[in-house]
Amino acid sequence: MIIEMNNIEKHFGDHEVLKDISFGVDSGEVVSIIGPSGSGKSTLLRCATFLETIDGGEILYMGKRAAHTNEHGEAVYVSPQELRKFRAYCGLVFQQFNLFPHYNILKNLTDAPIHVQHRSKEEAEETAMDLLRKMGIADRATAYPYQLSGGQQQRVAIARALAMKPEILFFDEPTSALDPELTGEVLKVIRQLAEEKTTMVVVTHEMPFAKAVSNRVLFMDGGVIVEQGDPHDVFDNPQEERTKQFLRVFER
């Protein structure tokens, strides 16, 4: 298991966003998370990447515990220094890309490897250029984010996350901020990563894509995993009424 989340609880004030959620991802697995907005998908991703703290449960990366519930029922995390090591296991691609506008594309990819991971400039730049070539944007290495289309920016964001050499890559609705004609180029890149057995968790509304690339689909609603399994089973033969309802909307 790359990541294991057990009995995760999360609430914002009185609102319970995640109710006793457990899920894990094996190496090389591609998991899609689908569900209506407000179902807790993004929150689950943000807890997994330590942008949000859990209120209960347990998070393990590579079998090592990053957070757990103590005997008083409080969620406790490892020390901030330790947590930084756990962060290195995971990468996150945001809906809004969140590239650094003052850095050119190459520096967006190399700054963290050099200054966070203390890798050499030469190695970081080599890795970055390899990734940009893979993403088909090597010719824009010296451009600034504002000069790129949304689709190109998102591909840079994916490359930036991969430049850190994470064990697992999370995507938070990676195509939701893109014009329809630009989603294809981003999905193509993710599909390519899936073929190379990159471990990924993708929160998405692109149902045909989720069906085509993932090994497993999770349907979330109301802070719980309603149904999960092989994409063909979940999409073509959903067992739960809520799943059927949700998927019907997309068939139109």
């Binding site: 990447t49 330590f50 942008l51 930084r84 962060r87 290195a88 995971c90 990468g91 996150l92 945001f94 809004q96 969140n98 590239l99 650094f100 506008p101 003052h102 700054d111 963290a112 200054h115 966070v116 991971q117 930036r160 996350a161 850190m164």
Partner: peptide, 27 residues
Amino acid sequence: IPVGQYEAAEVLGYTKTQTFMRIILPQ
């Protein structure tokens, strides 16, 4: 400065000081 800049830096493992000096302050 959009909160997404802080979050991107946090996920990439920048320390608070690095985030401020390298990402936030120049902008």
